[in-house]
Design a protein around this nucleic acid. Structure first.
Length: 225
DNA sequence: CCAGACGTTGTT
DNA sequence: GTCTGG
DNA sequence: CCAGACGTTGTT
DNA sequence: GTCTGG
């Protein structure tokens, strides 16, 4: 699963990395949590330029009656995303890149839970595979939301947790957000565990547990006892 | 036909 | 125990 | 994902 | 909106 992550890059770095014209400035984020606004990239039309977007984390399908009620999935299983009623329309038509550079998973140790931080060895930014939706209230207010796909854990994550977010390979970015693509057989192969030998991990303090703690201390390695 | 659900994780 | 909010 | 609330009446 | 269960 993936319920917290980081996005510490500057607007300039994001613009360069993801080939975007303009990216609004925002502070580095060390503890992004569900329900918050997060940065993403879409491609509106097959030939159009990529577009920087902001979505609320937690998917609200377009057909729900009341967006204030019910579960708002923060993750969708890659294995079933093409079939599930809550996801399949977005899977076909509204895929996005969710901008990130690290994520947290919690390991059960008896009854306690120990958070761990995962990132690329070179600490470069990457993109989660995401889906987004647009929901319109009876008062015609627009709510744009998203969810992060998950897959089975690779060798780096497995000791901590069974599942991990889908980190897309940069070569697959274009294909994932290409709105003219809607064939499962071409999309599902992109949703595989990221190569473990390019990742690194270490335990961190429980400061990350608290949503209000969005600070560099969240990613500091836990001192050995 | 209508009513009700539509999700993930982990734990039992 | 379960739901909501961040 | 975790933390925190989980209730009513009436008053400020 | 669409599928499942009754």
């Amino acid at each position: 699963m993936c319920g917290r992550y980081t996005q510490r890059q500057s607007a300039d770095a994001i613009a360069k990395q993801f080939q975007l014209k303009t990216v609004p400035d925002s502070p580095p984020r060390y503890n992004i949590a569900p329900t918050q606004l997060i940065a993403a990239v879409t491609q509106p039309k097959p030939s159009s330029q990529r577009r920087f977007r902001v979505f609320q984390w937690g998917l609200v399908p377009f057909w729900v009656k009341d967006a204030s009620l019910g579960a708002k999935p923060i993750n969708a299983r890659a294995e079933t995303v093409a079939q599930k009623p809550s996801f399949r329309a977005a899977f076909r038509h509204r895929r996005c890149l969710i901008l990130a550079d690290g994520f947290y998973e919690w390991q059960r140790v008896g009854s306690a839970k120990q958070p761990h931080f995962f990132h690329l060895q070179d600490d470069q930014p990457f993109a989660f595979a995401g889906l987004w939706e647009q929901w319109e209230s009876p008062q015609n207010e627009i709510l744009e939301t998203c969810t992060i796909l998950t897959t089975e854990a690779n060798e780096v994550v497995r000791p901590v947790h069974r599942r991990m977010p889908v980190m897309l390979h940069p070569d697959d970015y274009d294909q994932w957000i290409d709105p003219s693509l809607n064939v499962s057989s071409q999309l599902l192969p992109l949703l595989r565990p990221y190569p473990a030998d390019e990742m690194a991990a270490y335990p961190v303090s429980k400061k990350v547990n608290r949503v209000s703690s969005d600070r560099p201390e969240c990613i500091e390695p836990l001192p050995a006892e």
